[in-house]
Simulated scan of single mutants.
Amino acid sequence: MRKFSLWLRGQPLIADSLLALVVFGLDLLNLGQSHSRTLYVATGVVVCLPAALRRVRPVLSAWTLLAVTVVVVLVGARYDEATAVRPALVLLVLALYTLVAYAGRRRALWYSAGLIAELILESVVLDRAMLENVLLTISLYALSWITAEFLGARRAYDREVAARLEVAESDRDRRAEDAVAQERTRIARELHDVVAHAVSVMIVQADGASYALHSNPERAERALENIAATGRAALAELRRTVVLLRAPQAPERLPAHGTAGVAELAELMRRAGLPVRLDLHGELDDIAPSVSLGLHRVVQESLTNVLRHANPGAEARVVVRRGEREVAVTVTDTGTGSPAAGPARFGSGSGTGLLGMRERVAVLGGTLEAGPAADGTWAVRAVLPLPDPDTGAH
């Protein structure tokens, strides 16, 4: 039953069709009070049908239901009063709720005016006590509006929380990837140091041994012993490094590069509540993967820190320009730019975020500047050189 409920929540057309069917069934309970059962059933079907589209096409469904209701009231006043006064007309209250929750207040206000006009027409045509009828019905409409506002605010809050959790998960994954990359870099440096040092020593000793082999056999023997010892030590270090590299690790999740990657980051932050303006100039999809990844990381780290540390209501702007030999990225925000707030922008006061960006940019041969501007904004500016198409060098 729970699985069916979750599935039904993702199928609004089917769920609303079932709702319309239930309301039609309740409406048939008053069939015995009608003088023309065929007319009663026909008008009931016409009234309930628009409800099936209330979330798929909320505006069309609501106004269609209102128009059908006016026709049913006029028909009922002429042929059968039971046709005009029926439980199915409670769908008007549901239509108002749907407009407030899914289409916005402005459209709901226009629809409320239409409901009031329909209510006055109904009171005149059916010759009811107008004040009592209007007050009761308006109370139902007001309750519907308040309920929609409350539930809409709750849904908006849930969406923002979900978006922020998504950002947090993305940030966590990114930090985990950076940690793995840093560890791999450390192992690579160790490996390079071990191999380079050992091979250099072995080459020097081998050359010395070859020269002293006939003139000074004892010296040549010592050189060979040093070669063997150095080789054994290097082999032990290599084995230790290989053991580390063979440790099971989760597969790397590389972000989307180029225009799509930057746009995905901006949309992710917008869903979390941070307004982001994105200006992209030049072709970004054919640049080298290393530069594209560096650009992605600078934008990601900058926007994440704006979201976490800038003042409420801050807005961010990302400008990426590709030139002939470099790609420049600037991330600015309207949050606090005071010097005291600077350290907290990266690494929760430790500065590791900024340091990581500087190291990444430096590896690519670029430059990075970060700090408050004179107008109170905070800016991160990075310039990443493009590899030479002939040599591949930066």
Score class of each variant (00 low, 15 high):
Ala108His: 07
Leu8Cys: 10
Tyr40Pro: 03
Trp145Cys: 06
Phe150Leu: 13
Ala314Val: 04
Asp285Met: 11
Ala266Gln: 01
Val242Leu: 09
Val100Ile: 14
Tyr102Met: 10
Val242Met: 06
Arg277Cys: 06
Ala163Arg: 07
Thr241Met: 11
Pro385Cys: 08
Leu245Pro: 10
Arg358Val: 09
Leu6Asp: 13
Asp285Asn: 14
Leu274Glu: 04
Gly365Asp: 04
Leu364His: 07
Glu190Ala: 09
Leu265Tyr: 08
Thr367Cys: 02
Arg246His: 11
Met130Ser: 11
Leu143His: 02
Gly114Val: 08
Gly353Ser: 01
Ile227Ser: 06
Thr83Asp: 01
Arg358Phe: 01
Glu149Ala: 10
Leu136Val: 14
Leu8Arg: 09
Ala209Ser: 13
Gly337Tyr: 01
Val22Ala: 15
Ala142Thr: 15
Met357Ala: 12
Arg155Ala: 14
Val242Trp: 02
Glu359Asn: 13
Val56Lys: 03
Gly114Asn: 08
Gly371Trp: 05
Ser36Ile: 02
Glu359Ser: 09
Ala288Leu: 11
Gly351Leu: 00
Ser36Cys: 02
Ser302Arg: 04
Ala198Glu: 11
Ser144Arg: 09
Glu252Asn: 07
Arg239Lys: 11
Leu238Glu: 07
Pro255Val: 10
Ser200Arg: 14
Asn226Cys: 01
Gly366Gln: 03
Trp145Lys: 00
Ala234Thr: 02
Ile116Lys: 00
Ala236Pro: 03
Ala250Ile: 08
His309Ile: 03
Leu191Lys: 04
Asp158His: 07
Met357Ile: 08
Gly258Phe: 09
Asp171Ser: 15
Leu355Ala: 14
Gly366Val: 06
Glu324His: 13
Val73Gln: 00
Arg232Val: 03
Thr38Arg: 05
Ala236Glu: 14
Leu238Thr: 15
Gly261Tyr: 08
Glu169Tyr: 02
Thr304Gly: 10
Leu60Ser: 10
Leu278Phe: 06
Ala163Gly: 13
Phe150Trp: 09
Val299Ala: 12
Gly114Arg: 06
Ala247Ser: 14
Val85Asp: 12
Gly104Pro: 07
Ala250Leu: 15
Val276Ala: 13
Arg174His: 14
Arg270Tyr: 06
Glu122Ile: 00
Val75Asn: 01
Arg246Pro: 02
His309Ala: 04
Ser5Arg: 14
Ala234Gln: 04
Thr137Trp: 03
Glu283Ile: 05
Asp333Cys: 03
Arg106Trp: 11
Ala260Asp: 15
Gln249Thr: 13
Val363Met: 11
Leu303Ile: 02
Glu225Ile: 06
Ser36Ala: 12
Ala256Leu: 14
Ala103Met: 09
Ala379Leu: 13
Pro251Gly: 11
Ala113Trp: 08
Glu169Leu: 11
Ala148Gly: 05
Ala88Asn: 05
Leu386Arg: 01
Thr43Ser: 04
Val361Ile: 12
Val100Gln: 03
Leu126Cys: 10
Ala233Lys: 01
Phe346Ala: 08
Leu135Asp: 01
Leu165Asp: 15
Val329Ile: 15
Pro385His: 05
Val331Trp: 02
Val204Cys: 00
Gln182Leu: 12
Ser112Ala: 11
Ala88Asp: 10
Arg54Asp: 04
Asn226Lys: 04
Gly366Pro: 06
Ser170Gln: 13
Glu169Cys: 05
Arg325Tyr: 05
Ala113Asn: 06
Gly258Lys: 14
Ser350Phe: 03
Ala212His: 11
Asp390Ala: 15
Ile227Tyr: 07
Gly25Gln: 12
Gly208Tyr: 08
Val243Gly: 12
Gly356Lys: 02
Gly32Tyr: 10
Thr147Phe: 08
Thr38Asn: 08
Ala272Trp: 07
Arg105Met: 12
Arg232Ser: 04
